[in-house]
Amino acid sequence: MLCNKCGKNEATHFMEKNVNGKVTKLALCSECAKNSEEFKFDPFEGFKNFNIFDNFFGFPSIGSGRGKMLETAEKRCTLCASTFDDIVNAGKVGCAECYKVFADELAPTIKRIHGNRRHIGRRPLRDLTESGEEKTAKEDKEENPKDRIKKMKKELNDAVKSENYELAAELRDKIREVESL
């Protein structure tokens, strides 16, 4: 996620403000956060309360700068009731749902650990196709549905351009099938 202010650097400081039910969100890079009135962030405060996960999650832990930043935050996971502070403090994620609820907040950490990568390995068996065969086709392993649809739409355009309407119809049906999933 890019910084809301400069739009150039990766956002590393997040704030969610809830004033009488009106929620506003702010995501800034460390440089912009330093100069932001809203954060009033002491860049050295984090070091006073250093813990091993500060670097791991890219934030100072609770009781330090970040605690101040999120003192108004009320976002909680719907399954385990974790706040993002809970996750930062534990250095571990609360439950599977947290990965959805805090997707934006966790993204920089996941990027730091794994780079810009997507899963291409095994899938749980419940993802079996109707024929009972595991999704081992290359396209399933290498692309998520959005990328697949994009690629198929391009192929569809090419098929229409070359007047290969039979192929175009096949592609149209495949796109519908993936979109309906």
Binding site: L79, C80, A90, K92, V93, G94, C95
Partner: peptide
């Protein structure tokens, strides 16, 4: 999927 992880 339906249960919190260890810490929770």
């Amino acid at each position: 999927a339906d249960y919190p992880f260890y810490g929770k």
